[in-house]
Design a protein around this nucleic acid. Structure first.
Length: 354
RNA sequence: AACCCCAUGGUGUAACGGUAGCACAACUGGUUUUGGUCCAGUUAGUCUAGGUUCGAAUCCUGGUGGGGUUG
């Protein structure tokens, strides 16, 4: 009797290969695809998770592999748990990272629930990350392809999820994944990498889409530079710390957002990179996957996706963690995830608060 | 009202009378599971009407617009 596992299929090459590898390894594979699409056409010009062309690719793949497959409707949960909170963050002048919440609260939550429902022991996805186990404690590691590593987005996963997860492409490089897909004759082999947010309307920034969706007001105000008003903007949700593009203000040298005041709506610009550097910051809602790291441990912190992690020291400060990076970090942004690593091992993370 | 100064892409500026260039902004593309950063490329200008000159952003005259001084 083969062991039953579920594989999350997005329609992309990574999950296709993950499914194929699971089949090869001798599992009974049940494909699952989450539908997170908004029913309203005003939001459906978007390239959404599991959009129509993705579903065609998925149907083709499922037939090719000869596996059972289910769609799970997740939009309501996605809206409640991810979109609404993210929209609130944006209009409060912070920059949320909805993917981190989505992974714990929607994607892996639903997948693990479904796995339990149908009696599947494990959940396979096409993420670029790895899982290690020691004495029945699971830890998350960076994917082996440094350009594709997605562990940052998974920092909120707990032992409940990790103990059931397998990431077969986490030890591969993207080129190898494509080669495997091509070798197996999978139609997704040449498919472009998925690019936009799950919830991106063409020609509109993510914060604005969320604001419209949730019907929220955003504070408008001035651009300030060296104490002077140099322009006006249409809402603080459109801007993030360190942002250069889209300001519409010509200062003669590049200008960057250095502060957002949600009370007045004022956005402060700076032209000197040094003004954007932080020597220390606080993190809240911190979760550790196997406890607070021992004193004196050499840690690294990563403050946004695709930025390098840097050595740091951390200290407890009530229920917050104070982080002191070895080198000052540029554009530390409230609302973004600060994720801690020791080498390739992800230790935990939280939300930057100041 | 008189006198003086100024007028170059969306913004700020450069060009001895000899191919109007730079920075920022904007747009497009690359990178990207958030927002950004970063990289590459593109668009776009001599206020106006005359004159001098082989040739005018540049010199001359009038107009228009902006700033300043005087009363």
């Amino acid at each position: 009797m083969k062991e039953k596992i579920i594989v999350a299929l997005s329609g992309g090459v990574d999950s296709s290969v993950a499914a194929a590898l699971a089949l090869e390894a001798g599992f009974e594979v049940v494909g699952v695809t989450l539908r997170l699409k908004h029913p309203d056409p005003a939001f459906s010009s978007a390239q959404l998770c599991a959009s129509k062309s993705d579903e065609e690719a998925i149907d083709l793949l499922v037939r090719k592999l000869g596996i059972e497959h289910h769609y799970l409707e997740g939009f309501d949960r996605f809206r409640e748990q991810v979109l609404l909170p993210a929209a609130n963050e944006y209009v409060s002048g912070r920059t949320p990272n909805p993917c981190c919440n989505c992974n714990l609260l929607v994607k892996f939550g639903m997948l693990v629930d479904f796995a339990e429902q149908i009696g599947a022991a494990q959940v396979v996805t096409g993420h670029y990350a790895r899982i290690a186990e020691q004495n029945n404690v699971f830890s998350l590691l960076r994917g082996d392809d440094p350009n594709k590593d997605q562990s940052y987005f998974l920092y909120r996963l707990t032992q409940r999820e990790l103990s059931r997860l397998r990431f077969p492409v986490g030890q591969l490089r993207k080129e190898e994944v494509r080669r495997i897909a091509a070798g197996l004759g999978l139609s997704t082999a040449q498919k472009a990498d998925s690019q936009d947010a799950c919830f991106q309307v063409e020609g509109e920034c993510f914060g604005e889409t969320l604001r419209r969706l949730c019907n929220l007001e955003s504070k408008k105000g001035r651009f300030l530079y060296q104490g002077k008003t140099v322009g006006r903007h249409n809402g603080i949700h459109l801007y993030t710390i360190g942002q250069r593009k889209g300001l519409g203000v010509a200062l003669g040298v590049p200008g960057y957002v250095s502060a957002i005041d949600p009370e007045s709506g004022d956005i402060t610009l700076d032209t000197e990179e040094e003004k954007l550097l932080s020597c220390s910051f606080e993190v809240r809602n911190v979760s550790w996957q196997s406890g607070f790291p021992p004193e004196g441990d050499e840690l690294e912190v990563q403050i946004r996706y695709r930025s390098r992690s840097v050595l740091c020291r951390i200290g407890r400060n009530g229920d917050r963690v104070t982080v002191t990076p070895a080198v000052p970090l540029r554009a530390v942004t409230p609302g973004q995830a600060a994720v801690f690593y020791r080498g390739a091992t992800l230790l935990g993370g939280g939300l930057i608060c100041c």
